[in-house]
Design a protein around this nucleic acid. Structure first.
Lengths: 192, 192
DNA sequence: ACCGTAAGCGGCACTCGGTGCCATCCGCCA
DNA sequence: TGGCGGATGGCACCGAGTGCCGCTTACGGT
């Protein structure tokens, strides 16, 4: 409950050091002991800041979800696609300085299977948030197949977007927005 | 490389016993030692049959992928949605006797986060298979955003289908087929 | 200034999943 | 009968994660 901003300077330092080690040695090859030592902290304490080694990389995602939910709820209209598109464009607005860190994170998530796996667990909340929003606008049940397919398809599309963006080393923040827009066009239009 | 059928009687027995224990005690609450003892086998040997405790539950998925890829490739036409729909309907044709086991499996995957996580890693191959097929029919690049969004959205929709089917205890094999059809209609038509 | 308390810290020991190594056992073939 | 290869499983080990507990430190009240 430290709030969305704080996280104490310690956690921040720990995270930076950890990502640095992951980048140089690899995720699996870096033990928690090393992270603790490098962060100047006891192993036991490390686990108080991060419940899991994985959470060092994935921690941010939860903040993203909270932001998405807020923006999504504020969107007008009865078209979930338009609402979700606007919400994702609003939330994924990164400053140029943040892009390298984002790239590093995405890279890790992409090619460490363990991380990819855990990330998708987090995405389940996103899926349900999107499904609930769509259900509200369509005036159907949130558990209905249509709402559920929508929620999951949107998250799937966003994964594709980030993957495509990450694959092009020179892509900037605008490129990300363009990919988001294109993906939502696909979802709105249908694939047939 | 034991082939799609064999898996040796031992593995089969091990799997049955394990699923039984998972159902009664829970997945996390069952240790590999218990599985080995219950299966009348050494712990070390257990890990020769299943690289991971998770694989006891998820093993089947790979067979499904192979089947899907084969059927998908044989579909005619230039509409990936129609091809994927036909392939999924063909592959997911379960005999009534298999449904209880399927339910048990889905139940585990749904509410053991660890399993849900690993399952999605397996699905990545499905996504890429579907993306490649769509790319072929559309005559675009398999890495293109359109193909990637398609592949991932289809798998996402299928997850929604299985989830919805599992949520209704009385749903039979026909109901599963109906849900698949409905989901593909959504994907083909679009959500706007 | 002094003391009591609470919170953060971190060492220690333990559980459990997973792996490498190696001795053993069994069936099979010459 | 002797040997050979594959399957087995015991053993020791590693790394992640957890409960327990003693220690320090900072803070608030008198």
């Amino acid at each position: 409950m430290t709030g969305t901003v704080g996280r104490s300077a310690r956690a921040q330092r720990l995270e930076n050091v950890a990502l640095e080690l992951f980048a140089t040695q690899g995720f699996d090859e870096t033990t928690v002991d090393e992270l603790a030592v490098a962060g100047g902290v006891g192993r036991r304490t490390f686990f108080r800041y991060f419940p899991t080694k994985l959470d060092v990389v994935l921690g941010e995602l939860d903040d993203g979800l909270a932001a998405l939910a807020a923006v999504l709820g504020a969107q007008p209209g009865d078209d979930p696609v338009a609402a979700a598109r606007a919400a994702f464009l609003a939330v994924n607005h990164y400053a140029a300085a943040e892009l390298p860190a984002l790239r590093r994170r995405l890279g890790l998530i992409e090619d460490v299977p363990e991380l990819a796996a855990r990330a998708t667990v987090r995405y389940r909340d996103w899926e349900q948030t999107l499904a609930a929003d769509a259900a509200r606008r369509w005036e159907v049940d949130a558990g209905s197949l249509r709402a559920q397919v929508f929620g999951r398809a949107v998250v799937a599309a966003m994964r594709a977007v980030f993957s495509a963006w990450h694959a092009r080393p020179e892509a900037d923040a605008d490129a990300l927005g363009a990919l988001v827009a294109e993906a939502f066009d696909q979802l709105g239009r249908g694939f047939s």
